[in-house]
Amino acid sequence: MTQIEQDKNAPDTVMSDYNFAYLDEQTKRMIRRAILKSLAIPGYQVPFASREMPMPYGWGTGGVQVSAAVLTPDDTLKVIDQGADDTTNAVSIRRFFEKTAGVAVTEATAEASIIQTRHRIPEAELREDQVLVYQVPIPEPLRFLEPSEVETRKMHELEEYGLMHVKLYEDIAQHGAIATAYAYPVKVEGRYVMDPSPIPKFDNPKLEMAAIQLFGAGREQRIYALPPYTQVVSLDFEDYPFEASKADHLCGLCGAEDSYLDELIVDDEGGRLFMCSDTDYCVARQAAGHRGSDAAPTLEGVA
């Protein structure tokens, strides 16, 4: 067996050549100071000196840096990508911190003390002792409306958010409804308009939660935060109120009617399957005996 194969077969080995949680202490202090300021000014994007990480931009370098600055040896880490624990991005980040920080990992939402997420909020309600870390691609909610950082900073400074309402109005004028389905803009404590990262708007009402929420954008070098119970209002109009929407189906595997669903094409004849995007939620429901219309038949009574 070659050296490489041996290493591949021993992923749980903790690396001792790196500092705890990979980043050096001075970098962590810089990130930690940015996190404290972001908690003191909810919704405001604090610039930070984002580092090169051993993964490409777009793979969660911002979230990874925030997690590295927040992790303690006693933590239990959960990582999800679009709700799933078992996708490449989630598995590799989880393994990264297993190796460099030696922390315990889990797929169960309730057992995790830190949850790093890409584009979803878990279905299970989070507690005060949990921290939710978001991976953010474009932190500036106004960026696609105004490309200049100088201008968008001025807009935040003057609380001039008319442009965002014009965008939502144009949605209504063109489509008859607010067509924005993800990264739906919110206003935090009546002051800053914030991009909640590309979570589906189904998740927006959950942004007012008991856990601490930290948002890290590595390429764009911004950290922002929502302390527990912070007021978060999805932007809308009186006659076109915000609506948290999801596919109008039940989960095909666990039968859940309250969870956000992924649509899967299962054959080339138009067959499709709707299933929970939150894999832990779905698996836990199936383990509790819930069955959807597309679930595999149980083996009970066969053996």
Partner: peptide
Amino acid sequence: DAPKDAAFAFRAVMNTMAK
């Protein structure tokens, strides 16, 4: 043990700033 002591200390500070 600076990395670990600082990690625990920061979590305590962060929790007080967040709450």
